[in-house]
Simulated assay, not measured.
Amino acid sequence: MRTYGQYCPIARGAEIFAERWTPLIIRNLHLGCDTFGGILEGAPGLSHTLLAQRLKQLERLGIVESVPKPQGRGHRYQLTDSGHDLFGVCETLGAWGARWLEIAPENLDPYLALWSMCNALRPERLPEQRVVIRFDFTGFRPHERYWLLLEHGETEICKTYPGLDEDLYITAEAEAFVKWHAGRLSWAEAVRDSRIRLDGPPWLIRAFPTWNARSMFAHIKPAYDRALPNRGGGPQRTAGTLNAG
């Protein structure tokens, strides 16, 4: 690991926190992803090899610990007290990003928004019976289709047809779905403009937006009125981009 060679706590903390993928690993562990595969699922682009390296490093530093699974082989990963404190840094960074950084086209990954949505569902509001929801995403990326399975308060995202009857069909522009989840677009706006369309039983259509499946930063109002200096004579633009979390 490269170091700044300074005693300053900011420098020493940044040597750990600013490693690529480390904040997302900490975030995923906080959200309850306690297996190797679960952590990977919420970090598209992270390789198996690099995740293994990062987890070993975080264990060595006392930020993450692994414990044997109660049943079967393998280990579960969890944050230590130090790791939970470090997630507080993730929260502060996320709040800053939600306030000051726009969501650019390259950040519009509907799968990640769907994965994040599943971690924000309120189990007490979910239907008691099994529900299968098909999502069709259009827009910036090629057409993407996923299935969300809800049963007994548990959720599962399938990238291939699960062989079960579909109860609700949701067709959404990737941009609209991501920005709704991130709190940049209200459900009423998205549905009114047909950017998100639902087809299925009326009770399920009414219930879906009440499951409170938005980002933990959706309540933060962006400060995009603070524009960069207009040096080129064209339209002013606001600063920065950040993946929705």
Rank of each mutant, 00 (worst) to 15 (best):
D167W: 08
L168A: 03
L168V: 05
L168F: 10
Y169C: 07
Y169V: 12
Y169Q: 15
I170E: 02
T171Q: 14
A172I: 04
A172Y: 00
E173G: 06
E173H: 09
A174E: 03
E175P: 02
E175N: 08
E175M: 03
F177A: 03
V178K: 00
V178L: 04
K179D: 01
K179F: 00
W180M: 03
H181D: 05
H181P: 04
H181W: 08
A182H: 03
A182V: 00
A182D: 14
A182E: 11
A182Y: 00
G183L: 07
G183I: 02
G183A: 09
R184E: 01
R184L: 08
R184K: 04
L185K: 10
L185P: 01
S186I: 06
S186R: 10
S186Q: 11
W187S: 08
A190R: 05
A190K: 10
A190F: 01
V191Y: 04
D193I: 04
D193T: 13
D193R: 15
D193Y: 12
S194M: 10
S194V: 03
R195C: 00
I196A: 02
R197S: 12
R197T: 06
L198I: 04
D199E: 14
D199T: 10
D199R: 15
G200V: 02
P201Q: 15
P201K: 14
P202V: 07
P202E: 08
P202C: 07
P202Y: 12
W203D: 15
W203C: 08
L204R: 03
I205Q: 09
R206W: 07
A207N: 08
F208V: 13
F208H: 05
F208A: 08
F208M: 11
P209H: 06
P209V: 06
P209N: 04
T210I: 08
W211F: 12
A213K: 00
R214K: 09
S215F: 02
F217D: 09
F217Y: 15
F217H: 05
F217P: 01
F217L: 11
F217N: 01
H219I: 01
H219M: 07
H219V: 02
H219W: 11
I220F: 00
I220S: 00
K221R: 14
P222W: 00
P222A: 09
P222F: 05
P222V: 09
A223Q: 12
A223P: 02
Y224S: 12
Y224R: 13
Y224M: 14
Y224F: 15
D225E: 15
D225T: 10
D225I: 01
D225S: 13
D225Y: 04
R226S: 07
R226T: 12
R226H: 13
R226Q: 14
A227K: 15
A227Q: 13
L228W: 04
L228E: 14
P229T: 02
N230F: 05
N230H: 09
N230K: 08
R231T: 12
R231N: 10
G232T: 13
G232P: 00
G232R: 07
G233Y: 13
G233F: 13
P235M: 09
Q236K: 13
R237S: 08
R237N: 07
R237F: 04
T238V: 03
T238W: 10
T238Y: 02
